[in-house]
């Protein structure tokens, strides 16, 4: 673990990750992967894009007093009820208050069009969910360790 913790010791809370995922099973798989990871993190889940954007807005407003509620990483599913994942991504990346937060796409879609579109809209990474649990967990661990441990975040 990095000895130079990015957060003041007063918070002593693990970093917050916003997960936008409508499927309970997929969230369970993700949550389980986080729990089984060596890198600790808190998860905040919303099931729709709208809820996610609302949360982000409120947390940014409350940042001066509660910086711990602003996510350091966003995990976004593309196949969402209502607002599409791409639209959520676009809203985040167009908002100067939010655009700095790394946003990782987590989806089952291997569609080249989706991949291109997401990177063009400013996605920081695009991960295809593995079918097998073991492989899924493995790829999630790599992702968690990279973004929350290896990479230096703003």
């Amino acid at each position: 673990m990095n000895s130079f913790a990015p957060y003041p010791p007063s918070f002593l809370q693990p970093p917050l990750v916003l997960v936008i995922e409508d499927s309970n099973e997929d969230f369970e798989a993700l949550d389980r992967s986080f729990r089984q990871s060596s890198v600790k993190a808190r998860l905040h889940r919303t099931q729709t894009g709208k809820q996610a954007l609302d949360y982000l807005e409120q947390s940014i407003l409350a940042k001066p007093t509660h910086p711990e509620n602003v996510p350091v990483l966003i995990l976004l599913d593309l196949n969402l009820p209502g607002m599409r994942g791409q639209a959520v991504l676009q809203s985040i990346k167009k908002n100067p208050l939010l655009s700095y937060i790394p946003t990782v796409i987590l989806t089952t879609s291997l569609n080249l069009k989706d991949i291109h579109e997401c990177y063009r809209l400013g996605a920081n990474s695009y991960l295809v969910k593995k079918m097998e649990w073991q492989s899924f967990r493995q790829s999630m661990h790599i992702m968690i360790e990279y973004w929350l441990d290896t990479a230096t975040l703003p």
């Binding site: 099973e25 369970e28 798989a29 389980r32 089952t108 649990w133």
Partner: peptide, 17 residues
């Protein structure tokens, strides 16, 4: 290929979990 497979995968994962 999508809607039938997904719950099966979920079921399998749930057993493992």
């Amino acid at each position: 290929s999508h809607d039938l497979r997904a719950p099966l995968r979920g079921l399998r994962n749930l057993v493992i979990w």
